[in-house]
């Protein structure tokens, strides 16, 4: 019998999008499962499930993580940012400039990659407020988009940076 079914239970405390949460979870619950199934934060999508596509990207203590590969127990004592919390990280407008720019440039089509793409882009802009095209390509290299062809994403990230630097 698989140990998932009778997995050990852990108690963890963490923050998601600023909100403090404590809960008991099975040891082998993945972070994406915790977010989507337990917390009903369905903005984070799951694509490949094997750490390649970047759909499920979230930030843990400001670091980019594929939540499909991360065990939920590992966020104990940490802070997670998902797409649902992105707008609140920017105080000057209702939406994060990345969200506005992605809309303006149609940096998405089906939108399935978009939460991961936006979260990765935020991490990029945190580190590098004025990225070149090359910096963007480098940083987003692990976020797959099957729809857009990417150029609109590069334009959107640059425009967001510009807005934030203005």
């Amino acid at each position: 019998m698989n140990n998932y079914i009778e997995a050990t239970i852990h108690e963890i405390e963490f923050k998601v999008n600023g909100e403090e949460i404590s809960m008991t979870i099975p040891a082998n619950l993945t972070l994406v499962e915790l977010l989507r199934q337990e917390l009903r934060l369905t903005g984070t999508t799951e694509g490949c499930g094997v750490g390649v596509c970047g759909c499920c990207t979230v930030l843990i203590d400001n670091k980019v993580v594929a939540s499909c590969l991360e065990l939920a127990v590992n966020i104990d004592g940490k802070e997670v940012l998902t797409i649902e919390g992105l707008a609140d990280t920017y105080q000057l407008s209702e939406f994060h400039p990345l969200q506005t720019s992605f809309r303006e440039y149609e940096g998405f089509q089906c939108g399935y990659c978009t939460p991961g793409m936006l979260i990765s882009s935020k991490a990029l802009l945190d580190q590098n407020p004025d990225p070149s095209d090359e910096d963007i390509r480098e940083f987003l290299s692990e976020n797959i988009c099957r729809c857009t062809g990417y150029d609109s994403i590069i334009m959107a990230v640059k425009s967001a940076a510009k807005k934030m630097n203005a």
Partner: peptide
Amino acid sequence: LRLDGESKVTGA
């Protein structure tokens, strides 16, 4: 602007 844009950039 796409009508489904807001929902797609907010995860809604």
